Simulated assay, not measured.
Amino acid sequence: MSESKQTILDVNNLHVSFQTRNGEVQAVRGVNFSLKEGETLAIVGESGCGKSVTAQSIMRLIPTPPGVIKEGSIKLKGKDLTKYTEKQMREIRGTDIGMIFQDPMTSLNPVLTIGDQISEGLFKNSKVSKADAKKRTIELLSLVGIANPEERLRQYPHQFSGGMRQRIMIAMALVSEPGVLIADEPTTALDVTIQAQIIDLFKDIQKRIGIAIILITHDLGLVAQIADRINVMYAGKIIESGTVREIFYEPQHPYTKGLLKSVPRLDGDRNEPLIPIDGTPPDLFAPPKGCGFARRCDYAMDVCLQYDPEPTSVSEHHSVRCWLQDERANKAVKAIDNRSPKINFQSK
């Protein structure tokens, strides 16, 4: 990826909470990341880690109440979207940022043809004739790999397979040629073959029109095929960030290593069992005092339970939030393996 490409999206110190009867759920806790033109950034992590809430916050689609952006900024081409009114955001959605949701069947209107649903975005965001809207709709259906688009634009969502419906959602998101496309678990309900086709489609579209993509997923296999960089989220925070090669071949955070160990490999021993991450994520009604992963971590130290680590740079593009990066932990870590008891390490 060229270093000359400009940053199109910049998220800084984002905090998002939900007020419930039982208290405040701190879903996103100080997230920072940027996205360059034409880049693919993957955000990965377990269910409930805050990745989908982060995506919805960028689009300002969090229901308010109970959700609220408590702190931070979301700058698109230098303009802070957290300051925008709902009317202003309606103009941004679809034109500057497009989004693909998890389940296309619930996102598509069952009583409207797909041609009407795609062209609706054209009529909303620009003044076009019916003939031009139909022409553009056919172009988009062709772009996303739907055969016989002239005939199929008159059909309804139930007449398409799950993979085809997801392609229609991609076409709808690309109607006004946005600079950023957010794909929230776009292949979750699809079989492996169709998943590969959708990922190939993303890569092809990106090559053709240069769109920047944020891919929200828990599937590391998909990430390896398409992403330039990866943000690993846990308990509402980005705990490790780096290029695909750095995350897959030089992971630094115990959680990242645990995710990679739990993924089956074609080049691995078929008789070797997968290693799960013991325990469960913390309750974000009352986030833990120190590192959110400490109570599940085999390397956890006293300091991990008391203080949240700050990001540490491993390389130019690789950073991690972990006390194991502290020079005082090096000797202690060398003396233990993955199943050793917790060790003591006092903070400054």
Rank of each mutant, 00 (worst) to 15 (best):
C49T: 10
N12L: 01
I138D: 06
P157K: 04
K127F: 02
Q6R: 13
L141D: 06
R136C: 07
N330H: 10
I275H: 07
V180R: 02
P276E: 06
E240I: 06
A212M: 02
S129Q: 04
G292Q: 14
F285S: 13
C49D: 07
C304E: 05
S129F: 03
G30R: 00
L215W: 11
I230Y: 06
E71D: 15
I100K: 02
V28T: 12
D298H: 15
R208S: 13
W323R: 05
E24S: 09
I92V: 15
N109C: 03
E71C: 05
L266I: 11
S347K: 02
K331S: 15
L35E: 09
T20S: 12
P282L: 06
Y234G: 08
A224V: 05
V180N: 02
M301S: 05
I198R: 08
L122H: 12
P104T: 13
F18H: 08
Q155W: 03
I336R: 15
S17C: 11
A286P: 02
E139Y: 09
I114M: 04
H158Y: 14
G48K: 00
L112R: 04
V333L: 15
I97W: 12
I168Q: 04
R152I: 04
E250T: 13
E71R: 06
S262P: 05
D278Q: 10
Q325R: 15
S57Y: 11
L220Y: 13
V144A: 00
G23K: 03
D283C: 14
I226V: 15
P178T: 03
F285P: 00
C297S: 14
D184N: 10
V68G: 06
R136G: 10
I239N: 00
G78F: 04
K87V: 12
C297D: 12
Q206I: 15
L260N: 05
V144S: 10
T82S: 13
L222K: 03
I277Y: 01
Y156S: 14
P65I: 13
G145R: 08
I205D: 08
E120T: 00
K51E: 11
G162Q: 07
D298N: 09
P254E: 01
V263F: 06
V314L: 09
K261Y: 06
S119G: 12
M99E: 09
D269Y: 05
F123C: 04
P276D: 00
A189N: 13
I97T: 15
C291S: 11
L112K: 07
K5P: 00
D228L: 08
K36Q: 10
G290D: 10
L222I: 15
N148K: 10
A294Q: 11
A183N: 03
R152W: 13
L266V: 15
Q306N: 09
F248K: 02
A131H: 01
V44L: 08
Y255E: 11
N125M: 08
I62V: 15
